[in-house]
Design a protein around this nucleic acid. Structure first.
Length: 406
RNA sequence: GUGGGUAUAGCUCAGUUGGCAGAGCAUUGGAUUGUGGCUCCAAGGGUCGCGGGUUCAAAUCCCGCUAUCCACCCCA
């Protein structure tokens, strides 16, 4: 048995993974995002500092272990912290724009269900060095183009918000705590705890009474500083100008602590409670807090398992030539032809043999378009029988002509 | 971490008040000499999740365990 929450990607479906991966990379590349591969294992501290103490990911979902020297390590639960670590470690110039993308497995210890695995895959993009809301807009446009254009997923919803920056968020947080304290007794257990740890998260609570209370909570908008407010308005303007439909949702907050200003989510209603397909936002302070030179940054991540469940992409099948030998001496001759044809064409050799009927049956099952058949009659005359499976036509050709016939 | 469902052939699932283990699909073979798909016939394929208990007799009833799915929570 495989480990709980960790699934095989079987040969029958691996083509779809390859396709999703390559569509992601192609699209990202067109926007200038270059692939970065970082290790799956990092120092646990990187995620604790990056994602934040008090988040679910850090508190209960990390795969933690010590190596033989006692180093405290973790399987990565997400991609951004690693990318930032690499950006800092290799001293990329934060005066310049750097656009990176990644694709790979992530690990979170939680109960698996539809669209949620313990080993799951994310594709993501990150851009360092620019604080322009137009860049936020670009990333949302790319995200939407992937979902709708490349993966054929309809009816997605874009949710957008700004959660401010260190200059303005504290004021909002204080106001939120003040407000929610008045309803202390009515909030769910969880939210009462959040009051001390992360009051923003109460806005996101799905318990009915909590969300009723949250509806009238102080709106973050009223507390945004000039810079954050202008950033948010410009981003909305860019999206509107592109006719991108979005929902400006003051209740949207995210599960990771590093976000500043823009946060967004692209959701579907087709996957039950696992609604987020792509989520991300701006994290202008993360590079500095992980030891780098102050550098604005923004990015998102996409859940591949969820894309896989929803995407309707088709497998383009290559034409197949199926080789059938009817006796042992023919097999020897035909196998040589097969081995050389397989260098250039999609070929299958029927090793199981048996009657012509059963081999043709297998050829049909394998989806072959053409069969190359050799029995005693053909062999003696130095010929091959070429059968077109679709038109049900067949003709004898000389072995010498076989190469051109293909 | 909490709650619920499920576990029988490779797959999807039936299996009645406890009484010989089933179907469809798939696989393999055949339906007159070496011609596929459709149709027909036949065959192979089982630790009934695991371990206990009750009983003359358990896939079926009881207890425990495990796995898995779904939901909550949280997230992508």
């Amino acid at each position: 048995m495989s480990v709980k929450g960790m699934a095989d990607i079987l040969p029958e479906e691996s083509w779809k993974w390859e396709k999703i991966r390559s569509l992601f990379l192609e699209n990202a590349r067109r926007f200038g995002y270059k692939l970065i591969e970082t290790p799956i294992v990092e120092h646990a501290d990187l995620f604790i500092r990056g994602i934040g103490d008090g988040t679910d990911i850090v508190d209960k979902q990390m795969y933690l272990f010590n190596d033989k020297k006692g180093k405290h390590l973790a399987l990565r639960p997400e991609g951004t912290a690693s990318a930032v670590r690499s950006f800092v470690e290799h001293k990329y110039n934060s005066e310049l724009l750097h656009k990176w993308c990644y694709f790979g497995p992530m690990y979170r210890y939680e109960r698996p269900q539809k669209g949620r695995m313990r080993q799951f895959h994310q594709a993501g993009i990150e851009a360092f060095g620019v604080d322009d809301p137009a860049l936020d807009a670009e990333q949302i446009i790319l995200a939407r183009e992937l979902l709708v254009g490349s993966f054929g997923i309809e009816s997605v919803k874009i949710l957008l918000n700004s959660i401010g920056c260190p200059a303005c968020r504290p004021g909002w947080q204080v106001a939120l705590v003040d407000y929610f304290r008045r309803y202390d007794r009515e909030l769910c257990d969880n939210c009462r705890r959040r009051l001390d740890i992360n009051p923003l998260r109460i806005l996101d609570c799905k318990v009915q009474r909590c969300s009723e209370i949250a509806k009238d909570a102080p709106a973050g908008r009223n507390y945004l500083c000039g810079s954050c407010s202008a950033h948010h308005n410009k981003l909305k303007q860019y999206l509107s100008d592109m006719n991108i439909v979005f929902e400006d949702d003051p209740m949207l907050v995210r599960g990771l602590d590093y976000y500043t200003k823009t946060v967004f989510e692209i959701t579907t209603d087709k996957l039950g409670s696992q609604s987020a397909l792509i989520a991300g936002g701006r994290y202008n302070d993360l590079v500095k807090s992980l030891g780098g030179k102050d550098s604005p940054a923004t990015g998102w991540a996409m859940g591949i398992e969820r894309i896989f469940l929803l995407s309707d992409i088709k497998n383009a099948s290559e034409k197949t030539v199926y080789f059938i030998a009817l006796d042992e001496p023919s097999k020897i001759v035909l196998f040589k032809l097969f081995a050389s044809a397989a260098k250039r064409r999609n070929c299958r050799f029927d090793y199981k043999g048996g009657s012509l009927k059963s081999q043709l049956r297998r050829a049909n099952g394998a989806g072959a378009q053409i069969c190359a058949i050799m029995g005693e009659n053909e062999r003696i005359a130095d010929t091959l029988l070429i059968k077109d499976m679709k038109n049900k036509t067949q003709k004898l050709i000389k072995i010498d002509e076989f190469g051109e016939t293909l």
